[in-house]
Simulated scan of single mutants.
Amino acid sequence: MRKVDNNESKLIGLFYGITAYILWGILPLYWKALDKITPMEILAHRILWSLVFVLVILCFQKKLHQFKEIFKSKSDLIRLIFATIFISINWGVYIYGR
């Protein structure tokens, strides 16, 4: 991995920031297209496809074993369950409030 200098780092950050704002501005069009779909169905798809996406990334990075390690520790699993509940509530409220 090559080293990134400070100016290049700032430009990359600026690019990501502008991209995020553009996507955030386009998001209402996306929600309008999903008017006929229930919030729970959107949430279910978001959970499923996020899991698939993360597993694919972990496979490509050859780090799938780190994901499996979470299930060996009871305290890590409990933290994961609570994080899952809270992020699902967050996503659900966001989707419902659209």
Rank of each mutant, 00 (worst) to 15 (best):
F86I: 11
L27T: 15
W31Q: 06
A44E: 03
Y96V: 04
L64M: 09
F86P: 00
Q61H: 05
R46T: 06
G25S: 13
R98W: 03
V4R: 13
K72E: 12
L34N: 05
L51K: 04
I70D: 06
V54S: 07
K63D: 07
G97Q: 07
H45G: 06
K36S: 14
N6P: 00
F60Q: 01
V56A: 10
A44Y: 05
N7V: 09
C59R: 11
K36A: 14
S50V: 01
R46L: 08
W31G: 00
N7E: 14
W31P: 01
K68Q: 08
A44Q: 04
I81E: 07
K32M: 12
F53I: 02
G97S: 10
I70A: 06
F60G: 00
I26M: 13
L34R: 04
I26K: 06
S88H: 04
L43Y: 02
K62V: 00
R2Q: 12
A33D: 08
K3L: 13
R2T: 06
V52Q: 04
D76R: 15
W24Q: 10
E41Q: 10
L34E: 06
K63S: 11
I22G: 02
L48N: 01
I42Y: 02
F15A: 09
I18Y: 04
K72W: 03
I26P: 01
A44W: 05
I81S: 12
L14K: 10
P28Q: 12
A20E: 05
L14R: 10
S9R: 15
I12E: 12
I85L: 14
H65E: 08
V4I: 15
I42S: 01
V56K: 05
Y96A: 11
I85D: 05
T19S: 14
R46N: 07
Q61K: 12
L80W: 14
I81G: 07
K62I: 01
I26Q: 08
A83E: 12
W49C: 00
L51P: 01
D5Q: 05
L55R: 03
L51S: 07
I47F: 11
A83G: 10
K36H: 11
L11W: 13
T84V: 03
K72T: 11
H45C: 03
I95E: 03
L11P: 00
T38E: 14
A83D: 11
A20I: 11
E8H: 05
T84F: 15
S88V: 02
I87C: 06
L77V: 06
V93C: 08
I89V: 14
S88C: 13
Y16C: 04
L55F: 08
R46M: 08
I47P: 00
F82L: 15
I37V: 15
P28H: 12
L64P: 00
S73F: 06
I70E: 07
L80S: 15
V52P: 00
G92D: 01
I95P: 00
N6R: 14
L64S: 05
G97D: 05
A83F: 13
R98S: 09
Y94P: 00
R98Q: 11
L29Q: 14
W24H: 07
E8C: 01
D35E: 15
